[in-house]
C-alpha cells in the first residue's frame, strides 16, 4: 500500500499566453520506508513536484493521496494540521526561527501537537542528541554553522515522528563536508528508523544511498529506478 500516490499531476503557473506548464502529468507511488531521490537539472520540475507531494502546493490537475488522505481536497487549515501530524520538512536554507534556540526550534511543532512544555523539551533534546548536537540546545541559529543548523532542521523534522520526511535540496547551502554529514544522517535515519524520505537533489553523489532514484526532465519523469 503506497504512502504517497500521485496521479496525473499537472502544475501550471500564470494565465493565458503566459502560462508556464511545469509538471506535465506526473504519476508516482512511494511505498513506506522508501528513500527516494528526485533528481533533474534546474527547471526540470523536481522541487515543484516535491511541493505537490508535500502538501505545500496544490496541483492544477490530478490528485495526491498521502496516507489515504486526498490532500487536494483539504482546506488550508486542514492542510496545515495534516503537515504537522504526518510530514516533516528539511529546507535548503535550514529555515530555523532566528530568535529561538536550537531546542526551541525543535520544540515548535511538538508544542503545536499539544505536548507539554517539559515533554516537548525532552523530546527535542533527544532529537538534537540524535543528530549529534549534544550541548548545543541553547545556541541560537546564528551561533551554529550551516551544517549544524541543517542538523537542527533535521532534528525538528524527525522529532514529531512524521510518517514522511521531505528534504528540499538539503545540501544546497552547505560545503561538501557538511553536505556529506547531512546525507549520512538522513541515510542513518532511514536505515535505523525506516523513515520514508523524499529528497530533492541535483547532485548524484548524494543520491547513492537512496533506495530509489527518480529522474525528471521538462516536467516529466524520465526514469524511475531502484538504486
Amino acid at each position: 500500500m503506497a504512502i504517497i500516490e500521485a496521479q496525473s499531476i499537472h502544475r501550471r503557473f500564470g494565465e493565458g499566453d503566459l502560462v508556464a506548464h511545469i509538471l506535465k502529468g506526473i504519476n508516482i507511488k512511494i511505498e513506506p520506508g522508501e528513500f527516494v531521490a528526485i533528481m533533474g537539472k534546474s527547471g526540470a520540475g523536481k522541487s515543484t513536484l516535491m511541493y505537490q507531494l508535500s502538501v505545500l502546493d496544490t496541483p492544477s490537475e490530478g490528485s495526491v493521496i498521502i496516507d489515504d488522505v486526498d490532500v487536494a481536497s483539504l482546506e488550508e487549515h486542514e492542510r496545515t494540521s495534516f503537515r504537522l501530524r504526518t510530514l516533516g520538512y528539511i529546507f535548503q536554507n535550514y529555515a530555523l526561527v532566528p530568535d529561538l534556540s536550537a531546542r526551541e526550534n525543535v520544540m515548535l511543532p511538538l508544542l503545536m501537537k499539544n505536548l507539554s512544555w517539559q515533554e516537548a523539551k525532552q523530546v527535542a533534546g533527544t532529537a538534537i542528541d540524535s543528530v549529534g548536537l549534544q550541548g548545543k540546545y541553547e545556541n541560537l541559529p546564528a551561533e551554529l554553522s550551516g551544517g549544524e543548523q541543517q542538523r537542527v532542521a533535521i532534528a525538528r523534522a524527525i522529532a514529531g515522528k512524521p510518517k514522511i520526511i521531505f528534504a528540499d535540496e538539503p545540501t544546497a547551502n552547505l560545503d561538501s563536508v557538511s553536505g556529506k554529514q547531512v546525507i549520512d544522517l538522513l541515510t542513518e535515519l532511514h536505515r535505523s528508523h525506516q523513515h520514508t524520505i523524499v529528497m530533492v537533489t541535483h547532485e548524484r553523489e548524494y543520491a547513492t544511498n537512496c533506495t530509489r532514484i527518480v529522474d525528471m526532465e521538462d516536467g516529466r519523469i524520465v526514469s524511475d529506478v531502484p538504486n
Binding site: L56, T80, S81, L84, R85, Y89, L108, P109
Partner: peptide, 8 residues
Amino acid sequence: ILKGIGIE
C-alpha cells in the same frame, strides 16, 4: 516555513 511545518 512556520506554516509549512504545521504551525497554525
